[in-house]
Amino acid sequence: MLKTANLSYKFDDKYIFSNLSFEFANDSVFKLVGDNGSGKSTLLKILSGIYKNYEGELSFPDDNLVFYSGHKTGLKNNLSPRENIYFDIRLPEIPHSQINSVLEQLDLIDHADIQSAYLSEGQKRKINIASFMLSTANLYLLDEPFNNLDRKTTDLLQEIFDMKINAGAKIIFSSHDRSSDDFPLIDMNLFN
């Protein structure tokens, strides 16, 4: 499983973070916390393979299927929610019945076939959550998934987390909220 040793990243000559080591041993979830600019998003981008100029070790088994979700979700405004999910390059071929049931769970079914440009920001975020639900990956890298969600969606997302974990998947997600939960923390402030 994913493991890093002395991972450092610098932008030009300035280190964003350095000497970060962690691995998935018994835990299934890590919660990334830290101040703004401490490198949470950067770390997730390195782990997902977007940024390649890191220093240190990052061992990453080839059979891992990774699902990455950043601040920008790749949502196309002129495609409908259904098309956005169907053509999501992170997902395998998905039968429409399955997409329908997920859209129903997220209260998006009534808007499934209008262009996403006409949806509210919250609804657009739900499209990304739908992709998350449908993904069959075994490693999830999520950048602030709980930000700006209503109560109901938060609970639903929490449920999906549990489902994924029970299915044996690993999750790393970032958050501003360093309290609560019993997820083990990775505090980026310690590596700046």
Binding site: I50, G70, K72, T73, L75, N77
Partner: peptide, 8 residues
């Protein structure tokens, strides 16, 4: 919109 990040 972040699609290139997902491609990478």
């Amino acid at each position: 919109d972040g699609s290139i990040e997902l491609l990478l």
